[in-house]
């Protein structure tokens, strides 16, 4: 790019990887070791017997923890904290859940279609009492499709940065500044892919609309849950979850 130096791109790439490493839990090696540690039949049944409200609270709790890590990832990204505060909030409000969904592929075992949840790997059936079978299935399908790309940690890191720094989000005040940062991230990502002979990856990434659809589906299901359990949300859901989705 004529607008940024090679050194600048190099620093940005290092920064994306470091931000990702410092804010992704558990580490990749640990996930690899634990990927066959699944819930027993009895444990799955115990989750299935939980009331819908309790299961929603648990999932909202885990999701909120993941989102807090995404906020930290954003804060460490070169250039993010130089954006105006309105735009930081706009990008996180629109993109945090999408980043969590991308990050989820790290903790997903495509061989038995399970995901790390509260300490062990769980299949879709564990989430039955949530009452949103279709949404859970779609999220698992998405994780499965990302796993099929066999992404490296560096590729996950760049994908997350690119999902977050999106100049097309509505209500941005300094759209051009966000677009410039996004452009630099794309240059750095392409450079990484060229070096690792993975240029073909870009054409195989899921379309952005798929992430957007999953996030809308989550909000719709939350609204359906609230109609069933009016008053449940203020009491037991994390305040950050309510702020982002309610």
């Amino acid at each position: 790019s004529p607008t940024c130096s090679g050194m600048e791109i190099e620093l940005l790439a290092q920064d994306v990887l470091r931000s990702h490493r410092e804010t992704s839990q558990p580490r990749a090696e640990e996930l690899q070791q634990r990927r066959w540690d699944t819930f027993s039949r009895e444990e799955v049944c115990a989750y299935q017997r939980k009331p819908m409200q309790e299961m929603w609270e648990r999932c909202a709790g885990r999701l909120t923890e993941a989102i807090q890590h995404v906020v930290e990832f954003a804060k460490r990204l070169r250039g993010f904290m130089e954006l105006c505060q309105n735009d930081q909030i706009v990008l996180l409000k629109a993109g945090a859940m999408e980043v969590v969904l991308v990050r989820m592929c790290r903790a997903f075992n495509p061989d038995n279609r399970t995901v790390l949840f509260e300490g062990k790997y769980a299949g879709t059936e564990l989430f039955r009492s949530l009452g949103c079978h279709e949404l859970v299935g779609s999220i698992f399908d998405f994780a499965q499709s990302l796993c099929a790309l066999r992404l490296s940690e560096s590729e996950v890191a760049f994908l997350c940065a690119i999902v977050l720094i999106n100049a097309n989000r509505p209500w941005l005040q300094e759209q051009a500044k966000v677009a410039r940062l996004r452009g630099r991230l794309e240059v750095a990502f392409r450079l990484l892919l060229r070096r690792t002979h993975r240029e073909g990856l870009l054409a195989r990434l899921p379309p952005a609309g798929r992430l957007r659809a999953l996030c809308s589906q989550h909000v719709e299901q939350l609204q359906a849950f609230r109609r069933l359990h009016p008053g449940a949300l203020p009491a037991a859901f994390p305040p950050l979850y309510r702020e982002l989705f309610a």
Partner: peptide, 16 residues
Amino acid sequence: QEKHRILHKLLQNGNS
């Protein structure tokens, strides 16, 4: 900003 009080706070904190 009042509507996004917690997000605002997380962004303000050095390390949250």
